[in-house]
Design a protein around this nucleic acid. Sequence first.
DNA 1: ATTATCTATAGATCTATAGATAATGC
DNA 2: ATTATCTATAGATCTATAGATAATGC
Lengths: 227, 227
Amino acid sequence: MPESLKAKRTPRSKADQRAETLGQILDAAEALFSNRGLDGVTLRDIADEVGVTASLMHYYFKDKVSLFEAVFARRAGITSQRRMEALDRYEIEADGKPTVEGALRAFLDTDFDLYISGGQGWLNYAAFCAQVSNTPDIGARLMDRHFDAVVLRLMDILTKALPPCPVEDLFWGYDFVSGALMHTLARTGRIDKLSDGRCRSEDFEAVKKRLATFMAAGFIGLCTPAG
Amino acid sequence: MPESLKAKRTPRSKADQRAETLGQILDAAEALFSNRGLDGVTLRDIADEVGVTASLMHYYFKDKVSLFEAVFARRAGITSQRRMEALDRYEIEADGKPTVEGALRAFLDTDFDLYISGGQGWLNYAAFCAQVSNTPDIGARLMDRHFDAVVLRLMDILTKALPPCPVEDLFWGYDFVSGALMHTLARTGRIDKLSDGRCRSEDFEAVKKRLATFMAAGFIGLCTPAG
DNA sequence: ATTATCTATAGATCTATAGATAATGC
DNA sequence: ATTATCTATAGATCTATAGATAATGC
């Protein structure tokens, strides 16, 4: 059995080989883009990470932007659908009396659960997502395409959960939620230093516990003039 | 007086000339970095915008990173100091009874006022700031260096304003405020599309009116277990 | 004399393509 | 036969520096 111990050995079907290489490229791109953004990463960086030639990037993807978009598309559809289902389930369960925090928990916690127990790939995607939301044009288009539907679904439930409230307040409230969410997904490490180690960027459990409660109170405070 | 009408004419002292060119470079860099980030902009882009040779960038700045840092430093000191003074004034005025919203208004509104009435330069800086907060290493270091002091000052007043509350909640709350603030400063235009034009990213008055109220309610909701 | 600006250019990438090679598929 | 991967390379930048030129300063 000396053959089976050889270093370079890996007999696979072409389909398997294709799928595996594609996955490795997407994983490497995701990890690199997630902290340097589209312009901070070269195709060679990604190829080196995978251990292949840079020209192979063009065999699998048209160009750098296509690869960037493919990285996003791979997981955006999954999380988007999960959240949509969670919102549907919540609305039924709430039986005509949804609460702001309930809706936000369906929207936010469903997402955090994936990052908490989805392994390194989902953790990288979380930070990548924050980069996307900060990339003009290309990133903005991706956010619209993949997330508009879920966000509008959330807005719909929030409208029912809140006292009569100008629709502008609802949209601004969502903008604040979205900013805070993306910021925490980016895990910049800033809170670690500010809090002298008492909070850690990487601690998604801590964020999950607090974000929906905090934001729900924010919506209610904003929409209830008397305070 | 034909001489005074010539096109290229601009007699200035060397000090003036230096100051003017420096200012133009910083302005152009600020505008460009603010939407494409450190890696999305080349020194040539900046030079072209000013109308000078790319090599002049190296006459005034050591390298690209130094220029990036100089852009940030130019205005970060000003806004940081303004907010620090506003917090000091607020604490005196509150006479031992500060409120969460009062502290946040001193911190946030003071900033927005600058963006609202500071002209195009401050508007560009606002978006640039969001880029900085998203640039790993270099940007993170800049945020720490210029903003830690004001943030800790704010935290100090918030502690006095809130009911007894775990310090972790306070830091996470600030993290949410910071994320929402940076996101609105970036003015991605996403809210415009989501809200079908009813809210506009560029409308800092609308954000100023809502952000402190929303976030104050969030802090209180988070620190008051009963809800 | 000193300083602001430009010209020219080195050296290092970067993206993208064409064409060769090596492996799987029938 | 087809597909995955590599080698080689074109063409375009990009950063940074050296040295020339043109303007202000005494």
